[in-house]
Amino acid sequence: MKVKAAVLRQMGASHPYAESKPLGLETLELDAPGPGEVLVRIAAAGLCHSDLSVINGSRPRPMPMAIGHEAAGVVVAIGDHVEDLAPGDHVVMVFMPSCGHCLPCSEGRPALCEPGAAANGKGMLLSGECRLHDGGDGALIHHHLGCSAFADHAVVSRRSLVKVDKDLPLDTAALFGCAVLTGVGAVVNTAKVQPGQSVVIIGLGGVGLAALLGAIAAGAAQVIAIDLSEDKLSLAKQLGATATFNPAYVDAVGEVKTLTNGGADFAFEFAGVVRALENAYAMTRRGGTTVTAGLPPPDAALGVNVVGLVAEERTLKGSYIGTCVPVRDIPRYIALYRQGRLPVDRLLSGIISLDDINAGFDRLHDGSVARLVVRFDEQGTAA
């Protein structure tokens, strides 16, 4: 079948993206789903910094590639051996398919799935196949993180999908596949924040704000938000942050240490900047934990004082996709959303059309939005 998709043919685009237009809207050929695969009509797809890092070349991927990884949609058709989904089901996409058989999957750590990571690195589906082709010469078009969600339809592995209730708005459902899994998961899975503890969040994009909501839901007594955007700090305050600081105007490290009597129990870094991670580490107390889910360029390195790490029993942890088990965590987070304890819909900054995707990435790059979502209508065309 023919699909309309946003395709990146060359990485390294410079901002502003609306002028350089690194993403071209192309008509591609999409194969039918193979064994263990599902054809999904995309309803909504979020713009994320992980997309932007491929566009600007800071996280290299094979080209050309159909971009997009945070999405929700409706099942249209299923391939052989898919027995627990049917046409009409609503699903959320997860950008790390888990094989269920490798050692990390066996240990309950599907975010570290080895075949899934290998397939993502090659721009293929979990099966090792590619279902997208150039509409003209039939050349292969790579899949972005097994999803390629900036398109009206996508074929994905069944292992990349979590079924959700049909009454959940799909614009909101899309955010659970990346921003919420990564942000909330970093708090409750990676760090295991307990009631009454103190938390610092650095970087208030969609993931950072989701983490802030997760910290509040976990019962943290202090939830301190750090960002360079006054608008995002204002939103963090509205969402329940107990204090906010803009490091452009104040010594944020000093302010946090004063407010927390020496440092926070946990500091989370979501900016993807080494300096921000250094600050997060400096903001934690003796015996505290620093968690990073930011993804800077591959050559970025952190210098840590080893004596302090040892003598103060500090912990420095990475968190990928919130150390999640998607089939377990997404329903849990949706339940909290329905109870009003995880107001994920407030992270949605606006709805755009697929035609405006390059301009949307300008807004994401500028830091003026938390999450923009491309919405498609019921026929699968860009709304």
Rank of each mutant, 00 (worst) to 15 (best):
V40I: 11
G340C: 09
G100T: 10
D362S: 04
E83W: 10
A154K: 04
A236L: 12
D366L: 15
P343K: 02
V156G: 07
T289V: 03
G68E: 09
A252D: 09
T292G: 07
K317Q: 11
L235D: 10
E29C: 02
L140G: 05
G219L: 02
D137L: 01
P169D: 14
D137H: 03
P115I: 08
R59Q: 14
L233T: 13
T289C: 04
E107T: 06
E278H: 12
M283Y: 05
G73D: 02
I216L: 02
K163A: 01
E114V: 15
S353V: 03
R375N: 12
G288S: 04
I330R: 04
H15R: 13
H101T: 14
K192G: 13
R131F: 00
M93S: 15
C147K: 06
L354K: 03
D227S: 09
V310L: 10
L302H: 06
P60V: 08
R375E: 07
T323I: 05
G73S: 01
A225V: 01
L277S: 08
I202L: 10
G196D: 06
P62Q: 10
V3W: 03
P64Y: 10
A236F: 14
H153V: 01
A383G: 09
L342M: 07
R159E: 15
I224Y: 12
L336I: 06
Q238A: 07
T182V: 13
A301W: 00
G34C: 03
L372R: 02
H133Q: 08
R158V: 12
C105E: 07
K166V: 03
G121K: 12
L316E: 00
L181C: 08
G288E: 01
G272F: 01
V327I: 13
V180P: 05
G287Y: 00
G340F: 11
